[in-house]
Design a protein around this nucleic acid. Structure first.
Lengths: 263, 263
DNA sequence: GATCATAGTCGTCTTCCTGACGATAAGCAC
DNA sequence: GTGCTTATCGTCAGGAAGACGACTATGATC
């Protein structure tokens, strides 16, 4: 092991990139911004930016998230008391570190290490935030990743691939979200503060790209202690019979987990 | 969003730190090295070092692992073809990225962002490697984390805490390993190329700190397709009736998962 | 207002998996 | 051989999940 020599280390730029996921119109969507300058000028990219000289990584991610969406972050890692973390109230989003990408060639200009973060947010009215008008939008992840969708239909019009290695980052973020809603109550982060069982089920269906049996799903989520607590009201905003409204309970881990159909 | 300005970014040092876990004498142990210079001089720390100017993060972690232990890394992310990844043969170890730690105050000398990696290795003869004699050792994680052990007995002699935020990194790595052997075949990474069901069970027991029923465990692991393939031989190295030898099968995901007892 | 479409909610049945645990097998130490 | 240790097979009860029938309560349509 070489001795620690603080005076001679290669300098890196450190950025945070954000995979912001939401469910819009039954589809899992992510926030992308259009790049205004080279490299990859005009291409879509994940939002992100430099970590400031005296800023923690999670704080930088929360700042970027707020700048892009106006959302406040609920970072479970930064809250010392897990019980005090408010569950998706107001306009907050779940935020967690995803992974770090540091291929020497990932940015042609210089050596950039990007600490990607994953944010899960309820459906938001308009994506814009930073300043430019149409420079930000919600894009279905299925079209960005260019795979077959759930129906087996091939995606016809392939959009230009994301800048840098952002397609890989997005794929990792989507996979993290898909697996994490299996064994945690994180799917509620995609829902407004009050939601019905059917709305929660449509979140799972959109994220996993499958159809779930409404009866078994209802039995599962209402039968898991601490997952959902009834808020008293009902709603009919989905049409059909009025549904009971719930909010997220204190439980964060689902045991046994929600099983994702393999087919 | 501020425009990307490559000429004005705060410089960071980027390091990799390693949580190398193994099972020795029925205990989960991690590799620690003694610091030879300030800060935290004389204290134990996780092995690690600077990422070189033209080196990928995973490559840096693999290099550090090799320097410290002589192990070659099997990084699932760096292998394009997952089927070609050899399962813990020879003296290789599983290596994966864990998380990135970048608190501005985590190193008093300068701004250091550390990309922690998790390595799982079979029991190794001697820990030493880099150069110094007793500067590296395997330490039971239970003593380093200073918690109650599985028997409810308090840990009497508390060693000095790890340098920097390495206790936190170690805790995260241990938690990752504990949860990942639930739903993947990763526990075989702690085993030699050929092993018995009992040896694999003792891995689970050491990592989780619980006792498992040998009969149910045997039924579970031998009944999961692709988890274990018989290698033909038998061994009696554990005493008692000779046990069938297995090697890790091609399956990487366990479905349904192995359940960790909650008590 | 009757009918229909849509969603929500409650039950039933079968199958699979697990935890608890008895029983047998095959080595080694004495 | 006796005893001890570990491995391996089997049985049984309980719980969870998939498949699916039945009923309820709204709005939309005729």
């Amino acid at each position: 092991m070489s001795p620690y020599d603080p005076s001679a280390f290669p300098p890196f730029a450190v950025t945070v990139d954000l995979v912001v996921l939401t469910v819009r119109r039954h589809a899992l969507c992510t926030l992308v911004v259009r790049r205004g300058e080279p490299p990859f000028q005009g291409r879509w990219a994940l939002p992100g930016g430099f970590v400031r000289a005296d800023e923690d990584l999670g704080a930088a991610a929360a700042r970027e998230l707020s700048e892009e969406t106006g959302l406040a972050a609920h970072d479970p890692a930064s809250a010392p008391d897990p019980a005090s973390a408010p569950p998706a109230d107001g306009n907050g989003a779940h935020l967690e570190q995803l992974a770090t990408y540091g291929d020497p060639a990932r940015d042609p200009r210089m050596r950039v290490v990007s600490v990607a973060h994953l944010a899960l947010a309820p459906d938001l009215p308009a994506p814009r935030a930073g300043g430019d008008a149409d420079s930000a939008r919600w894009a279905p992840v299925e079209s960005l990743l260019g795979r077959l969708d759930g129906d087996g239909r091939e995606d016809g019009e392939q959009p230009a691939p994301l800048a840098f290695d952002h397609a890989r980052i997005l794929a990792d973020g989507v996979e993290r979200a898909r697996s994490k809603i299996e064994y945690s109550s994180l799917a509620t982060a995609f829902c407004p503060p009050e939601f019905t069982v059917g709305e929660l089920r449509r979140v799972y269906e959109a994220v996993w790209g499958v159809a779930l049996d409404p009866r078994n799903f209802h039995r599962k989520v209402t039968g898991t202690p601490g997952f959902l607590v009834p808020s008293g009201g009902t709603t009919t905003r989905q049409g059909g019979r009025p549904a009971q409204l719930f909010r997220a309970g204190g439980a964060t881990l689902l045991n046994p987990p929600m099983l994702r159909p393999e087919a």
